[in-house]
Design a protein around this nucleic acid. Sequence first.
DNA 1: GAGTTATATGCGCGTCAAGGAATATGCAAG
DNA 2: CTTGCATATTCCTTGACGCGCATATAACTC
Lengths: 113, 113
Amino acid sequence: MSDATLWAALADPHRRAIVALLLERPRSVGEIVEACGLSQPSTSKHLKVLREAGLVRVRQDAQRRVHSLDPAPIAALDAWLAPYRALWNKSLDTLGRRLDETPDAPRTSPPKD
Amino acid sequence: MSDATLWAALADPHRRAIVALLLERPRSVGEIVEACGLSQPSTSKHLKVLREAGLVRVRQDAQRRVHSLDPAPIAALDAWLAPYRALWNKSLDTLGRRLDETPDAPRTSPPKD
DNA sequence: GAGTTATATGCGCGTCAAGGAATATGCAAG
DNA sequence: CTTGCATATTCCTTGACGCGCATATAACTC
């Protein structure tokens, strides 16, 4: 659950796709397999990496294992990002755009990667 | 460049250290070498990866090449993070600050899951 | 021009991670 | 207990990555 495992987990595009899927709603492994087009063993391995990074939790429902996002590591990412946010806010300000200080308002679309 | 290069660039701890160094102030390659304790070729290669990811720019000053942070890709990271921010804001509201070790959260108030 | 400093690149090597196929485990129904 | 489904794990191969070393390029000085 160190920073290294978190970054390594998110470095893979397939795993980011899985995380994006789990953002919509929790899903079983089979659903993720079908949605991502990966093989079942490969998906299981990716999910294991995500679990070890603390990014997802598992709820066992009979034979199915429903995975859901754990927000904490993403909050850690946000904390890592925080010092840099001032930088690019200032840069935008230099360009003439006025931004409020509230780091909110998720106007952006879901991750496209 | 692409999201993939950005994530791959930041996946390496040494490169994140370089980025953190450049957050303070722009630095020449020699300064980064000394600060990070890496070899000069290795540092140059890491800087190349960071340049190709668009994370740093170079200003040539005589023989020195002063590298500085480019805010745009970090803003892209922030945009990627935005959809998840709502998630962990809500979660903090739900769970308070307690960490639960069991996969099934012992929540008291909310019925929705 | 030669020589020195600052940075970049090419090569070889070890390591590590991803993917695929086959197999093993856990769980439920009959 | 045997069967069938959902998921996890193992083995193997391959490809990418990082490092150290030596060397190449570029710019400044004399």
